[in-house]
């Protein structure tokens, strides 16, 4: 190759680079001046991902800069928080995860971050509805039937969950302690495989998020036995809640947005305002309804931090009670 074309290519390249970046030179304090990266701690297409994408699509309009959603799944969101802890705290890197890596993972596995110190929570998008279901042809007509069976046949009642240490699993473990029965836990990876196994009759019951079972309950192929919280469900007044059957605890899972610690306060305030506003739009409210989210009202700032801390402490004792805590190293 001749030298001249090679040099002119390099010159052209540099010129192109300068031309493309020109708008950024005059960057002043006005945030945001470039695209924001929204990391998602779970795979594309999941509930967290859908929430992140829809809220970002609305928020980017008022921010005036695109929000680029990137999935970084792994370790139930723990991998992402490990990365977020060391990300530049400039407001251009945000994360959407469930509260699992904040409030439960640190008690269950050795994580590479301090969940209560390394991050600034921005806003809580909502709480995930969960419940315990059986097949429509199951002999368990109501919750008590299932408990009676488990009491008579210790260890024979098989139930599927989206995974060990997930809130639907923790709930069942604690029920077993309260009712003094023994269930056989069959863990799956995610709501869907657990639901598939239940529909195929390979497990007797399943305890998962509502997204997994809602359509099957509506279609009549599954029966909802119990809702894992105190709030009842619209359109299904007969289904008992935890409160109704006398379980004095809850195991909520939240979807939330956070940023690395030490991001400038004005930027955090702006983000809280923008995302809170985005949450209240009819578009997001519809997505949240489709995703079976509860309490879709912005919870932000100090109140949100306080809620997270209380959840962290609550799950700490809870996980110790059901005997799932990590081994001390």
């Amino acid at each position: 190759m001749n030298a001249k074309p090679a040099i002119s290519v390099v010159v052209a390249l540099i010129a192109l680079m300068l031309a493309l970046t020109a708008p950024c030179w005059s960057a002043d304090a006005k945030y945001p001046t470039k695209p924001i990266h929204m990391w998602v701690g779970f795979a594309a297409g999941g509930s967290t991902d859908i929430c992140a994408r829809s809220v970002s699509a609305i928020a980017e309009k008022s921010l005036g800069q695109p929000i680029v959603v990137e999935n970084k799944p792994g370790g139930g969101g723990a991998l992402l928080l490990g990365l977020l802890a060391s990300a530049t705290p400039d407001g251009y890197t945000l994360a959407t995860t469930s509260d699992t890596p904040y409030t439960r993972a640190p008690h269950l596995i050795n994580v590479k971050y301090n969940s209560m110190e390394d991050f600034t929570p921005i806003v809580r998008l909502g709480l995930q509805r969960q419940g315990i279901v059986v097949r429509a042809d199951s002999p368990f007509k109501k919750w008590q039937d299932l408990i009676d069976f488990a009491r008579k046949n210790p260890g024979q009642l098989t139930y599927g969950t989206p995974g060990p240490g997930t809130t639907p699993h923790l709930a069942m473990e604690k029920i077993a302690i309260q009712e003094k029965v023994r269930f056989q836990h069959i863990p799956f990876q995610g709501d869907t495989p657990a639901m598939t196994a239940l529909l195929g009759g390979h497990v007797m019951a399943a305890s998962t998020g509502a997204l997994g079972w809602m359509q099957h309950v509506k279609a009549g192929s599954l029966r909802l036995l119990l809702i894992i919280e105190s709030e009842g469900m619209e359109g299904m007044p007969d289904v008992p809640t935890f409160k109704k059957v006398g379980y004095g605890f809850e195991t909520p899972t939240a979807q939330m947005i956070s940023a690395p610690k030490r991001a400038p306060k004005p930027i955090i305030d702006k983000l809280i305002a923008v995302f809170s506003e985005a949450m209240m739009t009819p578009q997001f409210q519809k997505v949240a309804r489709d995703q079976e989210l509860l309490s879709v009202k912005p919870l932000a700032g100090a109140d949100f931090q306080k809620w997270l801390q209380s959840q962290y402490n609550m799950y700490g004792t809870f996980i110790k009670e059901v005997g799932l805590q990590k081994e001390a190293k």
Binding site: G45, I50, T192, M195, T196, Q215, H216, A219
Partner: peptide, 26 residues
């Protein structure tokens, strides 16, 4: 059944849901 057979199908499931459609028996 609303059951994704692989990761791509899972994303497609998500896409359907964003459009307000729930794949599955209904």
């Amino acid at each position: 059944l609303g059951i994704p057979a692989n990761v791509t199908m899972a994303v497609l499931l998500g896409a359907l849901m964003i459009h307000g459609l729930t794949p599955g028996p209904m």
